[in-house]
Simulated assay, not measured.
Amino acid sequence: MLHLTECPRDAMQGWPTFIPTADKIAYLNALLRVGFQTLDFGSFVSPKAIPQLADTAEVLDGLDLGQSGTHLLAIVANLRGAETAAQHPQIRYIGFPLSVSETFQQRNTNKSIAQAFDDVARMQELCARTGQEQVVYLSMGFGNPYGDPWSPGVLGEFTQKLDALGVSIVALSDTIGASTPATISPAFRELTAAFPNIRFGAHLHTTPDSWQEKVQAAYESGCRHFDGALGGYGGCPMAADQLTGNMPTERLLEFGVTVEEEPILNLEALTDALEWNQRIFAGHY
């Protein structure tokens, strides 16, 4: 069975106008009723950097988690954000973007890769104390526009360091839509073979005509955990002015049917969530 992380946070973060907090809560509650394994619901980052997510704590307070088996994931950019996320026990996963591109690490978190690894180590210690789990996203995981080094070997070097720190969940993140089957396949094939104790995920950005070949390449190379966003909205505003959308969750569900590994979801609730998705993203704000 495919394991899906639904990423409304990634869909909303670069949206040009502020989405009312009440509508965010209603949309996220609709997604919780669908039954995704994980919901990337918000981010504890500077509101100056990502104004859209300044209300994450308020949104969290409004979520109805009573009957949901979905685990919550919050993204942070530094130890301070992780400490804030750790104060909320209903959050299962704390996600941190560790870039394999020095240029993007500076651009995204104002730190070097070496400094970011220090943060990862301290966040791992924090999660050990709180019972939460850290998810490290290897951003620019399939190449970058800056000329910084990239190869499956570079990914392996980063993952080896993460493994030594005790990190057990690593997601290769496309960030700008640069991935192709030629970069996806060797990355997952080599990493899944070399680090059997780590759960690898794919956070792929895509254009409408290239989604299937990307998912197919990751799946055939051993990946079973995928991030998506309904409608394919979103992208990283810290990476480029023109955003390349997220992997549409609808396409992931289609793929799950073709390989007979479709996740078990509440389809009636999914219809309601899709209606909320269109209210929010189809030009109403």
Rank of each mutant, 00 (worst) to 15 (best):
A22I: 02
F18G: 13
L32K: 12
L31N: 04
T38Q: 15
M12H: 02
F18R: 15
L32Y: 08
V45G: 12
A49Q: 14
Y27D: 08
W15Q: 07
K48P: 02
F44L: 03
D40R: 11
D23K: 15
P16D: 00
F36H: 09
G35L: 03
A22G: 09
T17V: 13
I19G: 02
A22H: 12
D40G: 01
T38C: 15
S43Q: 13
F41M: 07
A11F: 00
F44Q: 06
W15R: 10
F44H: 05
A49M: 14
W15D: 01
L39H: 00
S46L: 12
F41G: 00
W15M: 06
S43V: 05
R33S: 14
F36C: 04
G35F: 10
S43Y: 12
G35C: 03
P47I: 04
Q13R: 09
G35R: 11
G42P: 04
A22Q: 14
A11G: 09
S43F: 04
L31V: 03
A11I: 02
L31P: 07
T38A: 15
I25E: 01
L32F: 10
G35V: 03
I25L: 00
S43E: 06
F18T: 14
D40Q: 05
D23V: 11
A22C: 08
A49L: 14
T21L: 13
A26D: 10
I25V: 03
F18E: 15
L28I: 12
L28S: 13
F36M: 07
N29Q: 06
S43H: 08
I19C: 04
S43A: 13
G35T: 04
M12K: 01
P16C: 01
S46H: 11
V34Y: 07
A49I: 11
S46K: 05
P47M: 04
I19E: 04
W15I: 02
A11C: 01
A49T: 12
T21S: 12
F41K: 04
Y27N: 09
Y27T: 07
T21P: 07
V34D: 06
R33W: 12
V45H: 13
T17Q: 15
I19F: 02
T17N: 14
A11K: 01
G14N: 10
V45E: 13
M12L: 10
K24I: 03
F18N: 14
L39C: 02
A49H: 12
D40W: 05
Q37G: 07
L31A: 08
G14F: 08
T21K: 11
S43L: 08
Q13N: 06
F41W: 05
Q37R: 13
L28F: 13
Y27A: 11
T17R: 15
N29A: 09
K24R: 13
Y27K: 11
K24H: 06
